[in-house]
Amino acid sequence: MRDDVEHGPGMPGERGPDRCPAASGRLRGLVCVTLLACLFAVAAPPPSGASEEQDDPVVNDPLEPLNRVVFAINEALDTIILRPAAVVYGAVLPDEVRLGIRNVVRHLSLPFTFVNDVAQGEWTRSGETAQRFVINTMVGFAGLYDAAAKEGLPHRSTDFGSTLAVWGVGDGPYLVLPIAGPSSVRDAAGLVVESVTDPVDIAFRRADLDSMPLIRAGVAAVDFRHRNLDTLDDFKENSLDYYAFIRALYRQRRAFELDTDGDRYLTGGMGESGEDYAYPPPRPDFGRSRPPAQ
């Protein structure tokens, strides 16, 4: 799960399915087509399968039995490896060092963020991402120190799943990936693409630093887990069905980040007379600098 998405909720909704192949690049077109083919192949079984859920349009989880198994394995791995690692990470390293590590992790994500900004047609944002990368590479000691944030260029992240969403690809059924955790068919496809096209990882491999991509992913995972230690502990302890709770959390969070109507929740008859509507409604963009309440 990505929690470090700080581009606000209210990106203007001028994105549409027709944005896809508009601009440059044979390669991207190829990737796009291959991916769409994959998506349709994977998404083939219609989600209406689960007989119990027929009048409940909210839960799109036809693979729930399998997902629950993978989820349980992930939980076990979390309990014995990731969580202890995150606890040690928090206990051993001082705040400043952890902040530096987090900055580097984020910094290394910027080249791929830039690619996605461009692919999404977000020209202004792609420029800001590039500026941020240059500033923090030069002034911020290769990303260790976040100088760009002080210049009004806060960290923002996006991923290829988001790009697919902008191109009009629906999220498809819920999917729990081994190790990577909660996802959807679309976001999983995005991860696959990311794993082979991330510029920084490609650069590492070119430089014969073959283990670096894995180390980088490991550090990012420990950092993420550490920052969410209390929250996830609370959820795990207090939820009655942790799997269902995390599923609801992931899907809502994703719909919120992407702000695409296609992903927005249908309420499954939450209206007065049992009708459906998209809920929660998209949050209006109030801007960051609204004057405080009188």
Binding site: E52, D56, A244, F245, A248, F256, Y265, Y279, P280, R283
Partner: peptide, 22 residues
């Protein structure tokens, strides 16, 4: 309802309860 960072507590709770009922 409370919606925290885009996550509706009612929806989250409902999915959880629904899973248990099913």
């Amino acid at each position: 309802d409370l919606v925290i960072e885009g996550v509706s507590m009612v929806i989250a709770q409902r999915e959880e309860f629904s899973a248990i009922v099913v």
